[in-house]
């Protein structure tokens, strides 16, 4: 479809701008709040551009809170949950795609459909009974509820798209099914593994609901820590915005750098965590 003439082009440019401006405005306001001093943050009419920009808010986040500790918790939880999900989910995606077991795939989709809270009640009681509360283990296990379905779902799509001839050639040459998976299918599906890994990591990193129920004082992940510690112990906007920015910055950078992979994965799977 071609646009007719200059007015059409300008109108189109304006509508694209209108579509992306809400996203730009919220993130710019987040930056503005994070880099302004406290007086400017509560000024009315609001000050838009930090002048001069200050790092005090970030200093406050690091000095007054155990930010690095919570960041470390988040890193351990998200990397472990993603690693385990790849270990279990990539072969499962291969198996389901090759045997065309759509019922198994539907079962996985149930995890996508049900509210996260519904697993939490029984799992919470089981973890209490096992004495695991107060460690990161319960949080990692519950994050698998998000990461495993994402990985399986993305990988089914990729393995279905691979030409079957190559593996069959390997099987005819006497390879076992495991070798056909390990040395033929897996290397070909590497882009799919990358997509699955990125999405699973992001949605695990962003997850809030599991942590807010299961995490104790020392086992909070970053989103929970920002909500619990900062909102209650200090109401000032600057440090709060700075902390919010620090929590979401890794995810935003990953999205900007890997946008092609992320778009491919999301389009295929309709994936979302929690």
């Amino acid at each position: 479809m071609k646009m007719r003439g200059l007015p059409g082009k300008i109108g189109f440019a304006l509508s694209v701008f209108a579509l992306i401006s809400p996203a730009i405005l919220v993130f710019l306001w987040m930056l503005s709040l994070a880099f302004k001093n406290e007086v400017d943050n509560t000024a009315f009419p609001p000050v838009f551009i930090p002048n001069p920009p200050t790092l005090d808010n970030f200093r406050a986040v690091f000095e007054k809170n155990n930010f690095f500790h919570y960041a470390w918790n988040s890193i351990i939880v998200s990397f472990t949950a993603t690693g385990l999900a790849l270990l279990l989910g990539v072969p499962a995606g291969f198996g389901i795609a090759k045997s065309k077991a759509s019922k198994a795939a539907a079962l996985i989709m149930i995890a996508r459909v049900t509210p996260g809270l519904s697993y939490l009640i029984p799992l919470f009681l089981i973890f209490q009974w096992l004495g695991l509360t107060g460690t990161l283990t319960p949080i990692i296990i519950t994050h698998l509820v998000i990461t495993v379905p994402i990985v399986v779902w993305v990988m089914i799509g990729f393995f279905e798209g691979l030409p079957a001839e190559l593996e069959e050639a390997a099987l005819v040459d006497g390879a076992t099914i495991w070798q056909a998976f390990r040395f033929v299918a897996l290397p070909l599906a590497r882009p799919g593994v990358t997509v699955a890994m990125i999405l699973s990591f992001i949605f695990s990193w962003n997850n809030f609901i599991f942590g807010v129920v299961l995490a104790g004082r020392t086992t909070r992940t970053l989103p929970v820590a920002v909500y619990n510690v900062l909102t209650f112990e200090q109401i000032s906007w600057g440090p709060l915005a700075a902390a919010a920015l620090l929590v979401t910055a890794p995810v935003l950078l990953l999205t900007l750098l890997m946008q092609k992979e992320i778009v491919a994965g999301l389009t295929a799977g309709g994936v979302k965590g929690g």
């Binding site: 809400p22 996203a23 919220v26 993130f27 987040m30 992001i202 990193w205 962003n206 809030f208 970053l222 989103p223 929970v224 920002v226 909500y227 919010a244 920015l245 929590v247 979401t248 995810v251 935003l252 990953l254 999205t255 946008q259 992320i262 778009v263 999301l266 979302k272």
Partner: peptide, 11 residues
Amino acid sequence: ILPMMATPVAV
């Protein structure tokens, strides 16, 4: 697509 990728609690 940034809004859907950003950490929901942060935004």
